[in-house]
Nucleic acid binder design. Structure first.
Lengths: 210, 210
DNA sequence: GTCTATAGAGAGATAGAC
DNA sequence: GTCTATCTCTCTATAGAC
């Protein structure tokens, strides 16, 4: 799976350069010239390795989505208790002002109109929500509630990025996350509280969640 | 303040067309030609009213930010109890798959590198968080907690947009919002519960929040 | 496989008739 | 004030030498 060799291939250098430039400016606004300059590769070589700009984008965006999901999976599947894993994920060190490399692509007109690129972005979020959902289930939530909270958790992170970026201040990511964790803690207290059953999902006679 | 007359000025039509196109494709990817086509105005006229593409963008983005904030303010300052106003805002009807007209601009390379445009985006979020903060205070939260929750709330909406857009499915906005509201409800229960003081902010002797 | 040179389309912007 | 015509620059992509 592409072990780190001393000298990366020209192809890999092109992809890497594209990934970096996409993270900074998006796909649509990144020109082949910029990719060549950043990778130190000559003009025609890009079109030797990729038929078009979109084919390079497809590879580069696909890799970014996979790498980002893999990093999340590492945090969300350690030996810690599920609730701790969730908190670790939420509080993970992030370059909040730079934004999410994957999430920002949802505003890229080229990504959204190219099925291949869109699919990579979509898969990333599907996978991330699935990971968080099983963690919430492990932490004791019912499946529907777990899925809902997982979605909220991912939204908090993505929204934290948007806010930090908008104001040029990473502290908004921190506030968004801590506000959410504060509510999760409150909820943890009430979950062991019988008075809470009133507004939890109804249960059927055999105990399954309705 | 620009009352609706029967025939909008050429200038206003240009701005309106730009706003629509920015909502669909962002600022960087929108060309003067597209603006002219959409507004039905001839080639040179754009440059009669605006020195450059950026000056048009400045007006159009500024208006979008103001209009969007005004709409939020309307929901967040009605006669309802504060908690109801917050829920109304969170559950408001949104075109989730289209994304937030303002939030999406945080991924636009032209917006982020042009002070004027960036400031409009930043002001929108500053104003929105301020509105929600005072609603959370009215609902009984301490100032620091209120600001944190307001930030989380805005992040949930922005993240809901990102997810809905990424997957082309508005139900993710719904899940993110309902997951958040569920936690707020749990928190409302615990807030009237003395056992909760344990993990609330410490208080100084005069009762101020530390 | 990698380079230099360049084609064709469309970008932002201007000139000048009406 | 609004239009048509056009300029220059950069974009994506190709040709062809090495």
């Amino acid at each position: 799976m592409n072990v780190d060799r001393g000298t990366p291939s020209t192809r890999d250098r092109l992809i890497w350069a594209a990934q970096e430039l996409y993270a900074a400016n998006g796909v649509a606004a990144t020109t082949p010239r910029q990719v060549l300059a950043r990778s130190g590769v000559g003009q025609g070589s890009l079109y030797h390795h990729f038929p078009s700009k979109l084919d390079l984008a497809s590879e580069a965006v696909g890799r970014t989505a996979e790498q980002t999901l893999r990093a999340a999976a590492a945090t969300l599947s350690g030996a810690l208790p599920a609730r701790q894993r969730i908190y670790s994920y939420l509080r993970r060190d992030r370059d909040a002002v730079a934004g999410c490399r994957v999430g920002r692509l949802t505003a890229d007109p080229l990504v959204m109109t190219t099925d291949d690129l869109r699919d990579s972005v979509s898969s990333y979020f599907t996978g991330l929500i699935a990971l968080l959902t099983s963690n919430f289930i492990d932490a004791g939530a019912a499946e529907n509630a777990a899925r809902e909270r997982a979605t909220t958790a991912v939204a908090v992170i993505q929204g934290g990025y948007v806010l930090s970026r908008a104001m040029g201040d990473a502290s908004h990511m921190h506030s968004a996350v801590e506000g959410f964790i504060g509510l999760l803690n409150d909820s943890a207290l009430t979950e062991s509280d019988a008075s809470l059953q009133a507004h939890r999902p109804r249960r059927t006679q055999n105990g399954a969640t309705a």
